[in-house]
């Protein structure tokens, strides 16, 4: 019997396609997320918007928090580790978390290396801003990619930029010859074999989600129409006025992302969305997306 194979790791990610993964900080929120139709929950100490306000070093959540959430829901539970913090990852794996997010939302633990994700039995998801970054993470063993966007802002502009960079990057390499792909691989600092595989497939070789700034059903549908396989929603749900209603609406919008009538219906009367931040309000050095490389 084989555990932790690439097929099982990438396969797990495939089962989340078309779904919404929601950030939750306790059992009560986890239950709301599951009832609303979340495909998985991300167990956290604080949602990104609060991490942003709190400042200081943001770390892996307390294991008792993660366990509390795992005991509450029947859907998969994910949790975040700091970039490069392989011991936090070992701890989460031993708890039985279903997937680890090596996340720029937490304070990086290593300025040079990401976690060697191939050593783990459970799969990883990693953030990326462009094709090269996505392929580097896949090379390290990531079974799923998500855009970085700019977490905790409720502003979709960065997630859109990153998804366009990734999808546009793929479109650009699709008709290239082998020697041209060698050049691309050098230019975007990604392994040639993965560049070639991506060019042949016309998509990333792993599931590709949107994350970082999704706050409304329309945001979710926008990311899906730009080519996302599914959506992470962080602060967008539990920082809104009516989390239950917003959560359900984002699930329906993600499933029916091409149906404007349904999108119009689920977008009505949601109450106040999370307030949101303009990118101009966030100094360059405070942008979470620039963590990792």
């Amino acid at each position: 019997m084989l555990h932790g194979t690439e097929v099982l790791k990438k396969g797990f990610a495939k089962m989340t396609k078309g779904g919404v993964i929601m950030d939750v900080v306790n059992a009560e929120q986890a239950e709301i997320a599951e009832n609303a139709g979340a495909v998985s929950v991300m167990a956290l100490e604080k949602v990104p918007a609060d991490i942003r306000t709190a400042g200081g070093v943001a770390r892996m959540a307390d294991p008792s928090k993660v366990i509390e959430i795992m005991d509450t829901v029947s859907i998969p539970v994910m949790a975040k580790v700091r970039i490069g913090h392989f011991v936090e990852a070992q701890i989460l794996e031993s708890l039985g978390v279903d997937m680890i997010d090596e996340s720029e939302v937490l304070t990086p633990a290593d300025e040079k290396y990401h976690v060697d994700k191939k050593k783990f039995t459970i799969p990883f998801v990693c953030g990326a801003r462009n094709l090269g970054e996505a392929l580097r993470r896949i090379d390290e063993g990531a079974a799923m990619i998500r855009t970085k966007g700019e977490a905790g802002t409720g502003n979709i502009v960065e997630a859109v930029r990153h998804m366009r960079m990734i999808m546009g990057g793929i479109r650009e390499i699709q008709n290239k010859t082998e020697e041209e792909l060698w050049g691309v691989a050098r230019e975007i600092e990604a392994p040639f074999e993965l560049v070639k595989e991506t060019a042949n497939l016309g998509k990333l070789p792993v599931v590709n989600f949107a994350a970082g700034g999704v706050a409304t059903p329309a945001d979710a549908a926008l990311m899906m129409q730009l080519g996302a396989d599914g959506v992470f929603v962080g602060s967008g749900i539990f920082k809104s006025e009516n989390p239950e209603i917003v959560a359900k609406a984002i699930v329906e919008a993600t499933a029916n992302y091409e149906d404007a009538e349904i999108l119009a219906k689920v977008s009505r009367d949601l109450g106040k969305a999370m307030p949101g931040l303009d990118m101009g309000e966030i100094p360059e050095e405070e942008r979470l997306q620039s963590r990792g490389w």
């Binding site: 019997m1 084989l2 555990h3 932790g4 099982l8 795992m70 998969p76 978390v97 279903d98």
Partner: peptide
């Protein structure tokens, strides 16, 4: 999830 969580997922 009768065989367990993702850690227990298997090929056979």
């Amino acid at each position: 999830n009768a065989f367990g969580r993702q850690k227990a997922s298997f090929e056979k």
